[in-house]
Design a protein around this nucleic acid. Structure first.
Length: 258
DNA sequence: AAGTGAAGCAACCGCGGCGTT
DNA sequence: CAACGCCGCGGTTGCTTCACT
């Protein structure tokens, strides 16, 4: 399966990889390791661009890469991680070392997203859909858009409420987006919460508990302002907990400074 | 058996970040 | 400090397979 083979004007091969090409790439990386993707194709005797080689290696040939069906535990982990990280597939993949970001992204787009929608959950906000409208109370929400030009980014998130707390949270999300090293801290802290990911040794019982929790949330009357009603002190405590940013970057008048 | 739409998968494209010059 | 080039990431596309009629 894959795309048809064709050649660029400069003779670079595109499309589906052959077994021979795979072997060449693996043999080269086995001997020399992953290095400069620019020169790798020429040195490995491949008529491919470096980008294509990198993609093939990371998504398919890399040792330990797991193919095939996702287990229910993996799916639950993806959903949990996505609710926190959004469409940051690379970050999600870091927590699932046997799966490539491409694999996770594909599974999300083709399966998990639709499943959540069928269950009445907005896949972008992970909130119940009420009256056909997703409740817009995301921490790292992205607009639910099918547009190819809409590059998902936390900074594009918006709140339906104009409350100060919501505004503050929005700023926080923007700040997170602009500060990658902070995000890494966030991920570290969030993932120390056993409820977030089930992939690291979580047994079936825990998965079941998570599912029950989700059902409870769905079954209960959703409190629209659960997040929006956070006061600034609560938000500040939250930020301290997850270590998103140094306190000096957040002034008490609610103005965020980079 | 043939047609058709959905699902799944592999790969490409374009953009932004970051290091180098 | 601007320009440039490479790399990584997320979105999208195109092809195959499967299930259903």
């Amino acid at each position: 399966m894959g795309r048809a083979t064709w050649f660029d004007a400069d003779g670079t091969k595109r499309g589906e990889w052959t077994e021979e090409e795979d072997q060449k790439l693996v043999a080269y990386i086995d001997e020399y390791g992953v290095g400069d993707w620019r020169f790798l194709p020429g040195r490995a005797g491949l008529r491919r661009c470096g980008k294509s080689c990198r993609l093939r290696w990371l998504n398919y040939l890399r040792p330990g890469i797991k193919k095939g069906k996702f287990t229910p535990q993996e799916e639950q982990a993806i959903i949990n991680l996505h609710s926190v990280l959004g469409n940051r597939w690379a970050a999600i993949a870091q927590q699932m070392p046997n799966r490539s970001d491409n694999d996770i992204k594909n599974h999300w787009n083709s399966c998990l997203k639709k499943r959540l929608e069928r269950n009445g959950v907005d896949p972008m906000t992970h909130q119940p859909i009420i009256n056909n409208l997703a409740v817009k109370t995301p921490l790292f929400n992205t607009e639910c858009s099918s547009s190819s030009s809409a590059r998902a980014s936390p900074s594009s998130s918006s709140f339906s409420s104009s409350s100060g707390s919501a505004h503050l949270l929005n700023k926080i999300a923007t700040a997170i987006s602009s500060r990658q090293h902070c995000v890494d801290n966030v991920i570290k802290n969030i993932l120390s919460d056993p409820r977030i990911t089930s992939i690291h040794g979580q047994d079936d019982l825990e998965v079941e508990e998570l599912k029950k929790d989700d059902e409870k949330i769905l079954a209960s009357d959703y409190q629209e302002d659960d997040i929006l009603m956070w006061d600034d002190e609560k938000i500040r405590r939250f930020m301290e907990e997850i270590g998103v940013m140094e306190l000096e970057t957040m002034s008490y008048d609610g103005v965020y400074r980079l």
